[in-house]
């Protein structure tokens, strides 16, 4: 564990808590993409299959349980409890255009052609594009609530911090995982234009409003 990875995990944790607070306080899921949350649930389920078979640390297990629990709770809030406020017309990204290529790529490019390894690789590739339905929805509605902007900033920062973690681990431990790094770079790049909007607007107290 190193400071970059710890900050990354805390940023990820903060993003999920911000999202839950937004939904619970406003009792609304307006502006939130249910499809992205379904993709995140798929990512966590595929990546944490070893939750019960390999114990790494209390921290690791607690975070995995928290991430899986909260993402499914989020889906429950979007599609059941606050269903009336879910904006399905704008949440229209075709996720099959993500899942099929990512699934195929995981079969072709992986560290080891073994079931668990391919599923882990699938979760890494899927996570890098899982935010697309959410960003697509914001571009369609043309705006994002400030709290949703904070959620996306924390979520984007988490993988950017993981990139720093991988740089540190490369020099400190000689650890290097090309698949995780390439997917992490793609994932972080997808947030770049949002980061620009966030820093130039939200930091100055304005709302994000994209040219629709």
């Amino acid at each position: 564990m190193n400071i970059f990875r710890l900050c990354g995990d805390m940023s990820h944790l903060a993003a999920i808590i911000i999202l839950l607070l937004k939904m619970w306080k406003t009792r609304s899921v307006a502006g939130i993409s249910g499809k992205s949350q379904i993709l995140f649930a798929t990512v966590f389920t595929a990546r944490y299959l070893d939750l019960f078979t390999s114990f790494i640390s209390i921290y690791n297990t607690c975070m995995k349980v928290f991430f899986i629990g909260t993402v499914y709770f989020t889906i429950y809030l979007i599609y059941m409890k606050f269903k009336a406020t879910y904006d399905s017309n704008h949440d229209s990204f075709r996720v099959e255009f993500l899942i099929v290529p990512v699934g195929g790529l995981a079969f072709l490019v992986n560290h080891e052609f073994a079931p668990l390894e391919i599923i882990w690789t699938f979760s890494i590739y899927l996570e890098s594009v899982a935010i697309l339905p959410q960003l697509f929805m914001i571009s369609k509605t043309g705006e994002a609530e400030t709290i949703t902007s904070h959620y996306l900033f924390a979520l984007g920062s988490y993988r950017a911090l993981y990139l720093c973690n991988w740089i540190y681990r490369y020099y400190a431990e000689g650890f290097f995982d090309l698949i995780a790094v390439v997917a992490g770079v793609v994932q972080t790049i997808l947030y770049c234009d949002f980061f620009y909007l966030y820093i130039t607007k939200v930091m100055k107290g304005k709302k994000i409003s994209l040219p629709a």
Partner: peptide
């Protein structure tokens, strides 16, 4: 480096 401790990250 063994494969499984590659997966010590979240």
């Amino acid at each position: 480096v063994e494969l499984d401790d590659l997966k010590d990250e979240l």
